[in-house]
Simulated scan of single mutants.
Amino acid sequence: MRLLMLGGTEFAGRAITEDALARGWDVTVFHRGRHEPPEGARSVLGDRTEDGGLQALAHGEWDAVVDTWSAAPSAVRDAARLLSGRCERHVYISSRSVYRFPTPPGLDESAPVVDGSPDDGDVEYAEAKRGGELAAAGAFGDRALLVRAGLIIGPYENIGRLPWWLTRMARGGRVLAPGPRDLGLQFIDVRDLAAWTLDAVGQGLGGPYNLVSPPGHTTMDGLLEACIRVTGADAEPVWSAPEDLLAAGIAPWTELPLWLPPGEAHDTLHRADVTKALSTGLRCRPAEETVADTWAWLQRIGGKAPLRPDRPVVGLSPEREAAFLRSQAAADDRRSPVQWTRRPSVR
Rank of each mutant, 00 (worst) to 15 (best):
L3Y: 10
M5Y: 11
L6T: 03
F11P: 01
I16M: 15
T17S: 12
W25D: 14
D26W: 03
V27F: 10
V29C: 14
F30C: 11
R34I: 02
E39C: 08
E39H: 11
V44G: 13
L45W: 13
D51E: 15
L54A: 13
A58G: 15
H59E: 15
E61I: 00
A64S: 09
A71F: 14
S74Q: 15
A75C: 13
R81T: 14
L82M: 13
E88Y: 07
R89S: 12
H90E: 12
Y92C: 01
F101V: 03
P104N: 07
G106Y: 05
E109I: 01
P112A: 09
P118S: 04
G121Y: 09
D122P: 13
Y125L: 08
Y125H: 10
A126D: 10
A128I: 01
A136Q: 11
A139C: 10
F140P: 07
F140K: 12
G141L: 07
L145C: 08
L146K: 06
L146T: 01
G150M: 09
G154W: 03
Y156Q: 04
G160M: 04
L162T: 11
P163W: 08
W164I: 00
A177H: 02
G179D: 01
D182W: 06
I188T: 02
V190K: 10
L193P: 07
L205M: 01
P208W: 08
L211M: 10
V212F: 13
S213M: 11
P215K: 04
T218V: 05
D221R: 13
G222R: 00
G222A: 03
L223Q: 10
L224I: 04
A226S: 13
C227Y: 10
I228Q: 15
T231I: 07
E236H: 12
A241E: 14
A241I: 01
A248D: 00
A248Y: 00
A248L: 02
A251I: 10
P257C: 08
W259A: 13
P261A: 12
P261I: 06
G263E: 04
D267L: 08
T268F: 15
V274R: 01
V274D: 02
T275N: 04
K276M: 06
K276I: 00
G281C: 02
G281M: 03
L282C: 05
P286G: 05
E288W: 08
E289Q: 15
A292I: 05
W295K: 04
W297F: 05
R300T: 15
G302Y: 04
P306I: 00
L307Y: 05
P309A: 04
D310R: 14
D310H: 14
R320M: 07
R320W: 03
A323V: 08
A323R: 15
Q328T: 00
R334F: 03
R334G: 02
R334V: 01
S336V: 00
R342F: 14
